[in-house]
Amino acid sequence: MSFLQALRYFFREAAVNLLRGWKVSLLAVLTIAVSLFIGGAFLLVSGNLASSVERWRGEMRLVIYLRPDTAEADLRRLAAEAARGPGVTSVEPVTAAAARKRFQEIFPGLSDLVAGWQEEPLPASLELGLDPRTAAAGSPARAAWVDGWRKRPEVTLVDDDREWLGQLETVVAVVRAVGLALVGGLLGAAIFTIASVIRLTAYLHHEEIGIMRLVGATEFFIRGPFYAEGLLQGLIGGGVAGGALFGLYAALHARPRGSLFSSVLALDFLSPQQVAFLVLLGAAAGLFGAVASLRREEL
């Protein structure tokens, strides 16, 4: 029998077994689908968070707030100095008056809050545009340069976007790690379920297996349909997980971007490669479960 003939036979037998024992097969498929759905959801959230971080990194700024009494000449001098900093692509000096005006434009309902003061209520500042690559690198020289600004007497506060983006990156990493651990555990459970289902199927076929051995079937020929069954269960489970994920994504995408969650999650769906990876991971888990369940002494 050629390899292709054997494969055809394996998958035909596997399909018959799946249909015949559809209840236990469904359990195995659902277990793997749930595992991969959760894994895919974590992949979706972390992927979208990561791309958000990437986008925000492109708009990253460093704002140096100065004392309210900073003179305009000092502001220009400090701006010129800041422009020579590492990774600084632009410097916009904002006087205290300009800051107040901007506040009133952005929050017209709150404009009274900053009006009528004897002194300017908002500080002057320097808004620095940063090269995302240099800024993200987080070199000690850059950190020292930022610290240098913090220690200067004319500076009250340095607001570095890199700091909170760094925290967000930590959140992304945690989400990924938790997702990975959860998927690992759930995949383990799915593999165990598939192995149990395959073992049960093999037990139900033990008489037939005995006859096949008797008439001269090779181990490959005897085990092939069970391996194919595990593979099919995993593939179907992966497909169901991919479909459910897309359903979730489409539902969130259709809703107005009210919450941070929906706006982050519904940015982009998984790439075709990621979906293929999920489905193949399911197939691999199914195959592994089948192989693990059919040790020689148990078949």
Partner: peptide, 18 residues
């Protein structure tokens, strides 16, 4: 095998041999 026909029961070896 009770759930297989007489033909299927008899034809195991030819099936194995392709």
């Amino acid at each position: 095998i009770a759930r297989k026909t007489v033909f299927e029961n008899v034809a195991y070896l030819p099936r194995i041999l392709g």
